[in-house]
């Protein structure tokens, strides 16, 4: 356990990327969203989900750096790949949860103030009757997803090189596009949309979490044979 916490301490050397940058972006995005709410003449509830998700982007960068910079350092200090992986994911989960908690607090504030008095909602995902747990879970899963996309891509890059990474990414993009086209072609889009709504925020979060687990496992398998 000490070995895993050592890795977490190693990762948290970089507090700026893990904590400070996301918070700064969050602050900026919140102000921007508020300004837009004030300018929009519409009186109904307004949601700025995209703006709210912006700070989570920072986790993509953190995920990349965790592997390209911190991993080599952990190797120099004799950490095993397994301990590095667990410690790194725990660090990501910890900071993602912290950020999600901040979103939750903001969401509660929004509710209490009726959308800052202008019926504008920034941190509240307009799903599931705006349950606080849904807000927390959504932002947590989203941050983790971003982190793991960065972490996993860097692992693939380090292990097999740029060509393979690009092939994998392009392949995924093509597969998704083809799937979407097929759905449209067979008129199944309606059904898919209904399914998504039926899942609700928590249901989607659960699917997201599944993806997180898959990415985490596949990153670990990739990481096991990375060389410097």
């Amino acid at each position: 356990m000490t070995r895993v916490t050592n890795v977490m301490r190693l990762q948290l050397m970089n507090r700026q990327s893990y904590v400070i940058v996301p918070l700064l972006v969050l602050g900026g995005a919140a102000l921007l969203a508020l300004a837009i709410f004030l300018l929009v003449p519409y009186d109904g509830p307004k949601y700025a989900v995209m703006a709210a998700a912006a700070p989570l982007w920072a986790f993509l960068v953190v995920g990349v750096q965790a592997l390209t910079m911190s991993f080599p350092f952990s190797q120099a200090l004799g950490a095993t790949r397994r301990d590095f992986h667990i410690g790194t994911l725990l660090t990501a989960a910890l900071t993602a949860a912290m950020l999600a908690l901040i979103y939750l607090v903001i969401a509660l504030l929004e509710k209490a103030t009726n959308g800052w008095g202008v019926n504008g909602y920034f941190a509240t995902p307009g799903l599931d009757g705006d349950a606080p747990l849904a807000a927390f879970a959504s932002y947590f899963v989203l941050a983790m997803l971003w982190f793991l996309i960065g972490y996993w891509s860097s692992a693939v890059l380090k292990r097999w090189g740029l060509v393979v990474l690009l092939n994998v990414l392009v392949g995924l993009a093509i597969a998704l596009t083809v799937a979407a086209l097929l759905l449209v072609r067979f008129g199944a889009m309606q059904a898919v949309a209904e399914w998504v709504v039926a899942q609700g925020a928590l249901g989607l979060d659960a699917w997201g979490l599944l993806l997180v687990v898959v990415l985490a496992a596949s990153s670990y398998l990739t990481l096991r044979r990375i060389t410097q």
Partner: peptide, 10 residues
């Protein structure tokens, strides 16, 4: 390593 990498901003 001779070209050792360190965590960002450390």
């Amino acid at each position: 390593r001779e070209n050792q990498k360190y965590p960002e901003r450390a």
